[in-house]
Write a protein that binds this DNA or RNA. Structure first.
Lengths: 340, 340
DNA sequence: TGACGCCACTGAACCGCATTAGTACATTCT
DNA sequence: AGAATGTACTAATGCGGTTCAGTGGCGTCA
């Protein structure tokens, strides 16, 4: 900046004013300064900016998953991609970290905030009784909870959520209409807010219709557990005629398992996957799936965070309800008992 | 730091010395200062540190892929996870960005470097004739090329690479031993260095053995193209008896396509996937695959980068050759022509 | 025509840390 | 005892910006 000032024949402060669009310089000077800055390929040092109170121009994103669980999951990359799109426009950086669990995640938030590394964070996989929101509150760290329940009362935090309850209701509607009365929901990690929401909704929907053979089983989202649970429930007496999987990976594993057991999908058992991805169209039968736009989800979350950073109020935003894409893995329930 | 200085009854500089392990303070004072710092939960401001010449304590990672291509790909998340592990130990941040193409990627490097946002970067998906290495050289930005060919002569850059050539040779060996003479390699993006390496190696291996019905076809890694190419080559006259796919997603799509065409895997056609993941064990038949430890790959790359940042020399490191895990999708070639 | 206010700009302080030059005191050497 | 050396610490400076309190020139109005 000193160089620019010298070359433009003005003081350093004038340069600062000119470049930041503040009043105090004539348009002539402003243009001249801009031009010189351009020529010199000048870029403000984020460090210096941050030091003089401007914030770090960076937002944080922590993924609390053991490394081995980071498997075939298109959701996060797409989410991050959407987030990026919005952040990049505003020249905000994304600081990314993978940790083991939420405790570590809290520690990361504390460190980042203390080190003035980030201006805000995006929190994913909210849980029932989540320690992270409390920490953010305590620190005064602006944050957006992605996928959180809207009932959280942490005034400083925004929430972006999908209506899992509505989606689950729609799935049950569809299956019920097809004649399915025995349904098992192979859920994701217990403790995750959306897992609980889905489980609660399924139970409510079942009760409303007087269905007794409907239940949820939690898993760790892995293909292994998905397969294991599938085997267990299909081998029980009075096995379900429809299975709802909380992700595409388990759904695929489930179909493979069912096939091994001699059950045909969808003739003997219908399958619905909660996440839609290329996987769902990669095996026969193509999987009926709940589809949502993860990239857009990310965009929305990032937009909310930037609004928060601009001093806007915390908000709760609902993204569109996932749509059920009916493909080949759902069909009318057998009227008779499935074989053996 | 001012507070610490006051509370400990010393000057700010003494605090700096004490906390950074520099000489100039007695052990007594050092301990006292440390204790006070601890009590106050003090953390150095990275901005201030960066400003006084210490660097940004951050490394950059750019993914140049259109958002829609970021599909089911476990490789990157695992890689990043490994990178994180090493960086976290040293309290280095990871700045992450997704862009459309390598040109944008170069622009990001320039900006990051000009803004003093990063101390170094990790470059993935190196290409033949890659503009990025030149930019890094020009800027003097320390970098590690992940998956690069070792022959690049950019003295400042380290390279971490896997021996695709060796792996490809091993695969051809195996298939040849099984009696396969007509092989098609459904490759990834043309222009990627490792794609070219694999293609070259396959051609060389074929020539060495006098095989004429061996070829590579490039794709965009998507299941759609994988399926399309599979259909095309299997419907040709004298179709291949073995297919090598450059990723697991295409391999899966390929098996599905082959099945649709009435070809059985592995009886009619053998399939090898270049990347091993849960996907390979999620369908029947389980896919034979080339397996490597992506997390470890990430660790290695990050380690090289930290070495570079510490002023170490640029190095070229080879990670273990991917191993071929033989499962159920490879078998001896039919001696007779496959049906129709 | 002098007081007033506005505009365009400058000088200096400051952000939080690292670093270098300098200082006060104690110890050792001659 | 005075000089030389060393130790433990302090004061001052700079990193690259932002910002605030001036300052001088100029037009306006009474």
């Amino acid at each position: 900046m000193k160089d620019i000032a010298r070359r433009a024949g003005v003081s350093q402060s004038a340069v600062s004013f000119a470049l930041n669009g503040r009043p105090g310089v004539s348009e002539d000077t402003r243009d001249r300064v801009r031009q010189v800055a351009e020529e010199l390929g000048w870029r403000p040092s984020t460090a210096a900016r941050a030091l003089s109170g401007e914030g770090a121009a960076t937002v944080g994103f922590v993924l609390a998953r053991p490394a081995e669980t980071l498997g075939v999951d298109s959701f996060f990359l797409q989410l991050v991609s959407g987030i990026q799109e919005v952040l990049a426009e505003r020249h905000l950086g994304l600081l990314f970290q993978v940790v083991e669990d939420v405790e570590d995640e809290c520690a990361v938030y504390r460190r980042w905030w203390a080190e003035h590394r980030v201006d805000g964070v995006l929190v994913v996989d909210p849980r029932t009784d989540d320690p992270r929101t409390g920490v953010l509150d305590e620190l005064g760290l602006p944050g957006v909870v992605i996928g959180g329940a809207p009932d959280e009362r942490h005034p400083g935090l925004s929430t972006v959520w999908a209506d899992d309850a509505g989606a689950m209701a729609a799935v049950v509607d569809e299956l019920y209409a097809l004649g399915h009365r025995r349904i098992v929901h192979i859920a994701g990690l217990p403790g995750l807010a959306h897992t609980e929401r889905r489980i609660r909704t399924l139970r409510a929907e079942a009760e409303r219709r007087g269905l007794t053979a409907v239940k949820s089983v939690t898993t760790d989202y892995s293909d292994a557990e998905g397969a294991a649970v599938t085997r267990r429930v299909l081998e029980a007496s009075a096995p379900p005629t429809a299975l709802i999987y909380d992700n595409d990976v388990m759904a695929l594993a489930g179909v493979a398992t069912a096939t091994e057991l001699g059950r045909s999908v969808p003739a003997d058992v219908s399958v619905v996957a909660w996440e839609d991805s290329a996987l769902c169209r990669m095996v026969k039968p193509w999987l009926s799936a709940l589809s949502r736009d993860s990239v857009e989800f990310g965009r929305t979350a990032a937009t909310e965070l930037t609004a928060l950073l601009d001093g806007g109020p915390a908000r709760t935003v609902r993204v569109p309800v996932p749509r059920l894409i009916v493909r080949d893995s759902t069909a009318a329930a057998r009227t008779a008992r499935p074989p053996r």
